[in-house]
Nucleic acid binder design. Structure first.
Lengths: 108, 108
DNA sequence: CATATATTAAACCAATAAGTTAATTAACTA
DNA sequence: TAGTTAATTAACTTATTGGTTTAATATATG
């Protein structure tokens, strides 16, 4: 679910924008060449998987980044990180490591 | 692309399997309750984004995990890692700054 | 050669995703 | 109260996705 939400470039751009602070729906929509409604739907997707939360301030719904799902992706990646930053070269070693501390898939 | 490929649980399970060593298409398909053809298509998706590569050995196509795209995801996550492994909740601090009319740089 | 095995290709189908426009709800403002 | 702004809901269209079954392509072996 989280990874599907992250699969869309518009949604990733929204997250990047929110990394520099809260923004309302129309502020978030402004850079994109699509309707406000479309952006609102993207925000709903992000909200459903917990990547953002929305507040209420008069008629605005300030959105903010919620990092927990991203941290879960990071945790999931941990299973594979040994493949590129490790000193290991052989698959058998990876297997041993994964047997020992492998995490299950937290992202679906 | 990469994230869309990772969005499917079957494909993530395939990657997890390949983390413990090469496997043929039918070996990879065995655990799943779907046709071999379906798994073959999943492998094609993974191959297209570079998450796996296929060799040739007689009539078998041994698949192996290719870590580069995963490392790119890891690099992308780096932009957000500050939000959860820092010693302070930057988002809440940033919100507080905005309330006071503070400046606009979340990275210092 | 004939047949079995491993895999891919082609054609098809149902469900989902991403977008649209039009209508609706809610809150502020003159 | 009337009108404007912010955002969501509803209904719809089109493209993509994930699966199916059947057919084709290689490769190995009796």
């Amino acid at each position: 679910m989280t990874l599907s939400a992250l699969a869309d470039p518009t949604r990733r751009a929204i997250l990047a924008r929110l990394a520099s602070g809260e923004a309302s729906v129309s502020e978030l929509a402004e850079p994109f060449d699509m309707s406000l409604v479309a952006v609102s739907k993207h925000l709903k997707v992000l909200e459903k998987v917990g990547l953002i939360s929305k507040g209420r301030e008069a008629q605005w719904r300030p959105c903010r980044l919620e990092p927990k799902p991203l941290r879960q992706v990071d945790d999931w990646l941990e299973n594979y990180r040994q493949f590129w930053n490790g000193n290991l070269d052989r698959l058998e070693d990876y297997a041993a490591l994964l047997q020992k501390g492998g995490k299950n898939d937290p992202t679906n």
